[in-house]
Design a protein around this nucleic acid. Structure first.
Lengths: 196, 196, 196, 196
DNA sequence: AATGAATGAGACTTCATTCAT
DNA sequence: TATGAATGAAGTCTCATTCAT
């Protein structure tokens, strides 16, 4: 692992454990076993570091989703209920990834909305997730979803997933229960879809 | 307004504007027009201050909900669909309060999950909200809601309301549109209820 | 006990326990169960308080010595070895008092040399102890003691007593051992006297 | 001189002049001509600084004593009165060192008994002085000294030396007077020895 | 005499960042 | 690329003292 990677890894753990402001850069470099100067060699400032970390995590998540949902899309073809299938794949891939990457998820929960993440950073992420967003636009346009503003729809679904993930992180065994999965997806789906 | 209240008010504004760590206690006392020592006369530490503020805000919200929903309960009597009526009253009172108290809502959004709020504080709040929580227990027990853990149900509904509130704070005029209200409550209700 | 006395008593305990600077006046008034303002009603400043306390303690000690050694003097008459008898009485009365008033002794040990005690205060004390000092002048003049400066003699004897008292405070039962008393007085006496 | 040494030197002067609590760390760094942060780079806290300083001073004194008394030991051989010779060498080396290092001595006088010096620190010092302590154990065991507890003996002798040093610091020319030296050592010796 | 809320100067310490090596 | 001693501005909190009641 390169020193840059050591630093990112140490920062991830420390930021979620103590928060950004309660994590001195000296603690990061110590935990990463590099000198204090080395951190600033790789990241101009502490805020640069957290933005770089945010991008790494979001893109890692994206790669996972891409791998899982590409498969789902191919299997389903483009049948009439293709949208529901795709969104279900997205939904469950997301929860899978979170359960495999709990620290990363906690990081996104804590810092995704914080002012530390620059607009510039958010824009890069949004561009990368454009394809997924398009699924929701499609659902609204086809009259399958409630006729509500796209942003509101996205926000409602995102927060439903986040709440579910938080719950499963506490009780991971529940995710194995297919009955619970079914109920929960029904709840999720009905947040946006007019019909079950 | 007592000096204590001046301090709480100033802290509320500054914390949501800049965050906890980016708000020096000196800025709070300055904005509250009291001496630096006065802040520490009333609140032993800066963390004590934010916990006291959290309690004040939560209890103010509770009072508003109590006033509004007591009314709703009386009107509805205890008819068969009493639960849905009560929860709808709760839902809309909540959004009403948020739109009337945007700073307080932003404060709860930012700090409700943060490690700054002590367990002790959370416990006091939960005790005060026990009656509302009971509504959800009832819904689960009566088989009206999904048979999912109470905590999960609460978390899903809370995050639905929060996402809605956040949206209306950006677009307050949409809350006047009764059609949107209807759709959104339908979405909200179906997060937890098996039947529409 | 008057409030003034309550304050002095609380201050004594706290000063020896934590030191002068580590004892807030607020802690003193709290321990004395009076209001913060009351302390400053009786003592103009915190330094005034410690000076008042120093005087109280020194005069209390003096009273004890006077009571004990007056007796000794009367019994001994003014025989040739009167001086040794008187000094022995002084020596043992002093240790008696210390063992009965350990807090007061610790207070004198810690603050007797400190810059907190004003010259003015020291002068009052010295005036009150003039009679005892005269004993040592007499010993030097009579050629019984080493021909060394009075200040040095006083300093050597005082520190011998202090060291002994400190020891007996740790091991009070040793003071009951008359053999040890005898040896220790022999040691003490030979610090100043040419002959045993 | 390294920055660390500059800080220790400045702290020594300021502590004895004003006391620990009346010496702001800002005054130390200013007097040492280093930045405020530099002090805390070398010493984690202000108390760490005074403990480090205490060790430095005690070890410097020890080195001086070792150099002087090693010589004395060699000259004296192990004749019958070797112990008295050695202790006299110790006694006069000690006073020599104090007169050459008045600030260091005042520092030890003021802080040696204070609660600021950690047990841990005292233990390190005691270990280093074990050889000298052994001389006194020997004196007691050989029946040359009073049969009193070692701690008490050490305490009595230490305070005799301290009182003498304090006196000579006021009147350094007296230390040149060999007659006074002789009397004073006789006084010192008779604190512990049964025979002159 | 007694109270205690209010004051504000000043204390210790932290920490992101730099720079000479 | 890597190091870590050095920096100094800025932060939280303490505390002796005052004064209106």
């Amino acid at each position: 692992m390169s020193k840059r990677e050591q630093i990112l890894k140490a920062a991830l753990s420390l930021f979620i454990e103590n928060g950004f402001d309660k994590t001195p850069t000296s603690a990061i470099s110590k935990s990463a076993e590099v000198a204090t100067g080395t951190l600033f060699h790789h990241f101009k400032t502490k805020e640069d570091l957290i933005n770089a970390l945010y991008l790494e995590v979001k893109f890692a998540m994206l790669e996972h989703l891409a791998a899982k949902t590409a498969l789902a899309t191919n299997l389903s073809g483009n049948t009439e209920n293709g949208l529901k299938t795709q969104i279900k794949a997205l939904w469950s891939s997301m929860i899978d990834w979170v359960l495999e990457h709990p620290e990363e998820f906690r990081f996104l929960s804590q810092f995704g909305e914080s002012a530390l993440i620059a607009n510039n950073t958010h824009e890069k992420v949004e561009a990368a997730f454009a394809d997924y967003q398009a699924l929701f636009t499609q659902g609204i346009e086809e009259g399958l979803f409630y006729d509500l503003p796209l942003d509101l729809i996205l926000s409602l679904t995102t927060s439903h997933i986040f709440a579910s993930c938080n719950y499963f992180l506490q009780q991971p065994e529940l995710w194995q229960d297919s009955e619970i999965q079914r109920k929960l997806f029904t709840s999720f789906w009905s947040v946006l879809a007019k019909f079950k």
